[in-house]
Nucleic acid binder design. Structure first.
Lengths: 223, 223
DNA sequence: TAGATTGTTAATCGATTAACAATC
DNA sequence: TAGATTGTTAATCGATTAACAATC
């Protein structure tokens, strides 16, 4: 990224696919560290997922020059850089909305806590659940989302309510100034531009699998 | 798709993104049917997700000429075509491997049954779970995957075991001739070419959200 | 027939890959 | 120094969009 003296640095838009791959590189670097390697090349990183090494270098180069020519990347340094870039060097308070089967499973999911994601409040509409505590986490009524979240510094929400209720919940979360939503409801959420939504649509994924399954059965039969 | 007499029809490779969108079009068409509409245009479909109408037409045109010029698509006909294309006009037997929190949640998840996905056998290694039945669904030991699945016509598997065990489970599923795997373990599975894997990597998704959250906090602070 | 909308080709855009000078 | 590997530019590839003839 060469530029003349006095020019502003150009901030290139970072493709979402790059961000997704950063997490994967991080996981991979951690594996290399566990194997006792102190450096790793873009080629070695790429091989683990069938990616191109130039892509790995390009992805990393969006954020700085982390490598050493002729040597590769120091695993420890790369790990720390990736954690910093991904915002994993801090704790995130998370609100979970919807304490059904899926919500309960996520609440118990170790993967969250491990990476500094703390579900610190849960919301539901079911009177038999509201008012209880799960461990130290209070279960509150969905109507209280705005007042409760305004008092806390929570920037991420997880939606595990039925499709019909999801948009209303998202609207409330947005009102409280949340930045990111992980949405498990099978519906397209409409949110303002600054809010990032990740959809985990099991129903769409299953249909995609169904497509490929019926295709390969068809091919098999045809032979 | 014009071609000379006698030429073979060219089967274009269908982009995975197209397949994903088909499921979304189906959901949308169902909503339009519920609203009592008998036809729908590519423009109307596109608007619901901020897509381009040409993309909708192109996606559908991979599979045939379903539309009527000047009119649009008959909602009922399109629904049936999409269901046929996606293989949703039949039941799929599904094997679930891993009866932890997430596995249990999926087992209870209504969305599966609704679309003809029947989890008909569950596998785990935990001696306290193996041998039990959940409703009519038997819980068997993971060691029995190959003999049990060989006797049944199961073409899809869901993996909800820890990352370390996932590849071994995938290998076993592949041995039984499975076509598609929905993988919740945070690890890259290696499978033969004919097998389709959909990864649902919660850990990667959370990290992506964390990236955007910390970015927008940074931007906010900078102002 | 006039208006609308498809199916499809050509243009555009964005992401991936190849290639290579810089440099450890 | 010679070999290796980065960071980056240019070429390629694939997906999206614009445009429009075909046609209901």
């Amino acid at each position: 990224m060469k530029r003349e003296r006095g020019e502003r640095p150009i901030k290139p838009r970072i493709p979402e696919k790059t961000v997704t791959r950063l997490s994967i590189y991080l996981r991979c670097v951690e594996a290399f560290i566990a194997d006792g390697m102190s450096t790793v090349s873009s080629q070695q990183l790429a091989e683990r997922f069938g990616l191109n090494s130039a892509l790995v270098r390009k992805d990393l180069a969006y954020f700085g020059q982390f490598g050493v020519r002729g040597l590769g990347y120091y695993t420890e340094g790369l790990k720390q850089n990736l954690e910093r870039i991904l915002g994993l060097n801090q704790e995130w308070g998370v609100a979970l909305v919807g304490l059904g089967n899926l919500g309960s499973a996520l609440l118990n999911y170790r993967g969250f806590q491990q990476r500094g994601f703390r579900i610190s409040v849960v919301f539901d509409t079911d009177a038999s659940k509201v008012g209880r505590r799960i461990g130290s986490i209070p279960v509150c009524h969905v109507e209280k989302i705005v007042p409760i979240l305004k008092r806390r510094r929570i920037k991420m929400g997880i939606i595990t309510v039925p499709a019909g209720a999801a948009q209303a919940v998202a609207d409330q979360l947005v009102t409280t100034g949340i930045n990111a939503i992980l949405n498990f409801a099978p519906t397209q959420l409409t949110v303002p531009k600054g809010v990032k939504v990740q959809n985990v649509d099991l129903s769409v994924m299953l249909k995609t699998l169904s497509f490929y399954t019926s295709r390969s059965s068809r091919v098999t039969r045809a032979r």
